[in-house]
Amino acid sequence: MLAYAIRRLGQSLFVLVLMSFLVFIGVFAIGDPIELLVNPQADEVERIRATAALGLDKTFLEQYWVFLKGAASGDLGKSFVYNVPALSLILQKLPATIELAFVAMVMAIFLGIPLGLVAGLKPDSLVGRGIMAGSILGFSLPTFWVGLVLIMVFSVNLGWLPSNGRGETTLVAGIPVSFLTLDGLAHIAMPAVNLALFKLSLLIRLTRAGTREAVLQDYVKFARAKGLTQGRVIGVHVLKNILIPIVTVIGLELGSVIAFAIVTESIFAWPGTGKLLIDSINQLDRPVIVAYLLVIVTLFIVINFVVDVLYSMLDPRVRLGGAAAAH
């Protein structure tokens, strides 16, 4: 297990370095930030001074080297626009994004798995068909469109829910969260539903497919032949087996929900990292873009690691580190 963790750490560092290099090439390609940062009326001397101050006079490789040296000591550079460390700028916005992603994921899980089970157990019933029809809608409607419709209905027409911001927040361990106040809940409801919809549909389908396959297996028939209750057959024998792929997908999707909350955050003006990224791209704020992507990649790596550990706990046939099972 320890050897496995160390090997994973090594792989992760390699991924991070490679990723940062690619991102560097990318941000170089989108344009020269000096044009945007310096007052158009400024003279040549001023421009050269600013370029040097931001380190933009160096070659690409020199700049990357400076970045790597900084990154090794935890310094991902300063924002060109705000002149504060890019990392702290992101970490300041990250809780809002994580909270939104988390609430959306919890919604998707606690609705998706039960609905998928029902649809899988009774595929030909009206309820089963209804659930499937709903999940097809959830899959095919574009996120931004659903977001706008939600605002139209619940904010504009009915006036029930606020359409932007986080609302009132409370501090939990020094981090502001919305979901503990009524006002915060009202604010997070629509963006979370918006973000959850796609994942919900995905989980319904995944659970349904897994259930339909599992109920045909001999071990389910054998469990029934033992005289177990329906609840135990479904809740233990079926669920524990279908949970294996579901946990994997939930893990992967948690990362992507954080990364791709951008659309939802933009629609509902949710003050998270997605909005920060869009702003940074518009202003060519290179250090923030690079830092954002590195933070997201790190999150992906951590989540994947946790999923692998969970997976090995759920499926006794999987042993981390490739050690063979004992006979």
Partner: peptide, 20 residues
């Protein structure tokens, strides 16, 4: 079922639940 009448199946690889 399971108490007065029990049943066993053909393929022992499939009848036991792999994750329990």
């Amino acid at each position: 079922r399971g108490s007065r009448i029990a049943m066993i199946f053909q393929d022992p690889m499939m009848t036991l639940n792999p994750v329990l």
